[in-house]
Design a protein around this nucleic acid. Structure first.
Lengths: 338, 338
DNA sequence: TGCTGGCACTCGTACGTCATGAGTGCCAGA
DNA sequence: TCTGGCACTCATGACGTACGAGTGCCAGCA
């Protein structure tokens, strides 16, 4: 087990390195922190920390930098979550309050998060499957062509075209619309498949095909992965990655463009609270030199989606975690109000 | 006026520089192109081209690179638009045909354009004001709370909450919905303000306030600039900008994050055909080292929005212009079908 | 047993020198 | 008007050197 002081040394190394972006040596450490011991002692501690794999040397005669394992220990044991200041909190609320619709909420959230953390922000739209149905609308575009619009309690709107196997009258349409809504409105999306299962049977034979097609389209919109959407922002902050950034930035940008990768990234987080993935803990290779801080958010007690930031492993973890948590809370509030 | 051969020299310089990313000298030029004259002659031509401001030297003993003015001449006089190959065209069509809704169409278009041009792609959603209304839907969320959903012929869906000054009954709601649709369905959005102007008068006094509020919200969604949306992609291609890219990439990423800047960029293009803005021709400073190729697209004869790419001034103009034009055409087709 | 000062050693960085060669401008001659 | 020749410029890369930050180790001390 590492002694109290060695942990203190690790904390000091992480803090200094995050601040300066440069390997930190024993002398500089004793000067900037009141460790109460000499550089020589710190050197011994550093050697021990290096043996354990918490820090590393870029090259022989340089200072130490934390490894992923070192950051992990720092996040788990040595640092808390830094709460935002009151003015910051007020700014968040003011900024989010002006949103007019869901796209606007998500867009503002992304910008806010990117600005607060000075990193790349990722915000997932509220999941359909974890939301409840507010309304299902059916419109006739042509005799055998319908438009299906689904609206959730979180303000999300999805629409699909439906090509009917046979012409579908206005009365049948009104009928289907009414019955559909009476069954699913207010219910959770995940329950919809069962709730509508036997619906076609109660229609005229002529209309059964169309009803079945409509329902099939409805269920299609709920398929996991294809129903997920997200928005990213603050990519300009990638330029703050460090000196070696030309090599690092490309795979990160590529990863950020693949929705699938990002969804996995956010989805991986099984913990209902905040999740921090550091460097190689990220499965995706392109993100091996980044850390991801993510958390669920929701209008009620339950999370309907996730949001987070992607930054260099050398990031201000307490501050970032504080900002992510605070933003998630306010977004949840906004959604609940709408 | 520049002689025929000097123009030929400029064309050769542009082509070589775009290919190699390195300043091109007189000797290399005569070797790679059949100009029929010696390097010394080419040197004289180059000196003339430099006097006219079409090319420049990074430093004394280096080759020449085209200036913005040089590229401009190249685009205007020396190069055509390179049509895509048949397989490429087929690939475009196949890829776009799979889209399920407008978001999907725009998303696919962005990815396609980024992939074809290997540059950053920007696609604007069909403008509301230039589309026609397919349907307006009103839903009751609470006694004094409505949701307004607007659907366009291009498949775009916008929704807004409406807080009513007084409770609004189901029958009034159905009434308003029907009257609203009979007036505006199939009409152009830009005509909507006049078409609904006198609508409140025909309602009971109790409901007039609510009707007015609904109409105000409807008109709000049509306000220019706030109604515009767009999607970008292919930012990973920014890493192909060149050696000096760390300095260049940041302002570009920042510009790309500001919708306003991008909308201006696309909107600036007054020409109904393709527009090319080279380097400093872009008003926004961050984009001074980029070129923007943009073009309008639409379901009918008229453009409902624009799309384009942002890349280094040193880009393959004929190829890029060909790809942009082809994609715009196919997107127009897809929208017309939906 | 743990801390400290001292000391030799490593090695990345900065700097100055120098040779190389690509590329130019200019000029005289065809 | 084009061409070959020639002197000149200057960025680039290789090489050697000095510097200094930082380390590991050891002997001495509490």
């Amino acid at each position: 087990m590492l002694s109290e002081r060695r942990l203190e040394v690790l904390r000091a190394i992480v803090q200094d390195y995050v601040g300066t972006e440069e390997p930190v040596g024993s002398k500089a450490l004793t000067e900037r922190h009141k460790l109460g011991v000499s550089p020589a002692t710190v050197r011994n501690d550093m050697a021990a920390l290096e043996d354990e794999g918490f820090i590393a040397q870029p090259h022989t005669s340089a200072g130490r930098i934390p490894t992923d394992k070192g950051y992990r220990l720092f996040v788990d044991k040595l640092a808390g979550v830094k709460p935002l200041s009151a003015p910051e909190r007020r700014a968040i609320q003011n900024f989010l309050d002006g949103a007019v619709d869901l796209d606007d909420v998500v867009g503002r959230t992304v910008r806010l998060l990117a600005q607060l953390t000075r990193q790349v922000a990722v915000v997932q739209y509220p999941s359909l499957t974890r939301s409840t149905v507010r309304h299902v609308e059916l419109l006739s575009l042509a005799p055998a062509r319908l438009m299906l619009v689904v609206i959730t309690d979180t303000g999300r709107v999805e629409q699909r075209h439906v090509d009917c196997p046979a012409p579908f009258g206005e009365t049948s349409l009104a009928d289907l619309r009414a019955r559909l809504n009476s069954r699913v409105a207010g219910r959770r999306f995940s329950d919809v498949p069962q709730l509508v299962q036997d619906l076609p049977e109660s229609f005229d034979r002529d209309d059964q095909g169309t009803v079945a097609t409509v329902l099939a389209t409805l269920l299609e919109t709920l398929v996991e992965e294809s129903e997920e959407r997200l928005m990213i922002g603050g990519t300009a902050n990638l330029t703050r990655f460090g000196h070696d950034f030309p090599l690092v930035i490309r795979p990160v940008l590529e990863a950020l463009e693949e929705q699938v990768v990002l969804l996995k990234l956010l989805g991986e987080a099984k913990d209902p609270g905040m999740t921090v993935r550091i460097g190689h803990e990220n499965v995706h290779e392109g993100l091996n030199s980044t850390s991801v801080v993510s958390v669920g958010y929701g209008s009620g007690g339950e999370a309907v989606a996730k949001l987070g930031v992607v930054g260099p492993t050398r990031m201000d973890y307490p501050g970032t975690m504080g900002a992510v948590r605070a933003v998630a809370r306010y977004v949840g509030q906004i959604l609940a109000e709408s």
